[in-house]
């Protein structure tokens, strides 16, 4: 019975990490700059949602995925929910209004991380590659939007912070792309990602 004990420990770890993120000092610290808010706290919340899914047994994951309406519906939900939290106004609201902050802490793991992880495991290299390449080009695009914006987009953050986020997004996109291509060079996904969605000739 090694497996359940290990996943129990992981669940405990994930729960503790989540609680840590909700603690006011940690929250304030991460939300003090736009970069750590957008590029550390929010991705961590998404990641925790993904970790939570990995801890569920396979049958439950399948039922959950079907309940959501299949992998494409999962991906669409994750895309829309994450798009909302990219709006500068949503960032402002999360800082100023407790209800919005609560919505962020609930929706990022449950409506982005969870459906994304559910969709991910049923995608082959084509589906995953499509998500990666889109994510990367949209990240460059978003980074440029922040750099080129002619005004301050958030009431809570300064223009300097906004610029830094823009360049960080672009840099991150480059690193992610290099990492993804590097993985294809190594071919690590070969055995795992035989695309089940696409029947081959």
């Amino acid at each position: 019975m090694k497996q359940p004990r290990r996943s129990g420990r992981h669940a405990l770890g994930a729960g503790a990490a989540y609680l840590l993120l909700t603690l006011p000092p940690v929250r304030h610290w991460l939300e003090a700059s736009m970069a750590s808010h957008m590029l550390v706290q929010m991705p961590l919340l998404v990641a925790l949602g993904m970790v939570a899914v990995r801890l569920l047994p396979a049958g439950r994951r399948r039922r959950l995925r079907n309940g959501f309406g299949g992998p494409l519906a999962c991906l669409t939900a994750a895309t829309f929910a994450s798009a909302y939290w990219m709006l500068p106004r949503a960032l402002d609201a999360a800082i100023g209004e407790p209800l919005a902050e609560f919505a962020k802490f609930v929706s990022l793991p449950l409506l982005v991380g969870l459906p994304l992880a559910l969709a991910w495991e049923s995608f082959g290299l084509i589906g995953r590659g499509f998500v990666w390449t889109n994510l990367i080009s949209m990240q460059v695009f978003l980074g440029w939007l922040y750099v080129a914006a002619p005004l301050r987009v958030c009431n809570n953050y300064l223009v300097d912070d906004q610029l830094r986020v823009g360049w960080l997004l672009i840099t991150l996109a480059g690193l992610l792309f290099a990492g993804w291509l590097g993985a294809l060079f190594r071919g690590a996904p070969a055995s795992r990602t035989e695309a089940p969605m696409y029947k081959t000739a």
Binding site: G124, L125, I126, G129, F130, T133, L181, L184, F185, R186, G187, A188, P189, A190, T193, E194, A195, Y198, T200
Partner: peptide, 17 residues
């Protein structure tokens, strides 16, 4: 191109190979 990448990786184990 993604489908070609998939097939090459499945058949040859990665771009490097």
């Amino acid at each position: 191109q993604l489908d070609i990448a998939r097939a090459i990786i499945a058949g040859y184990g990665g771009f490097a190979r």
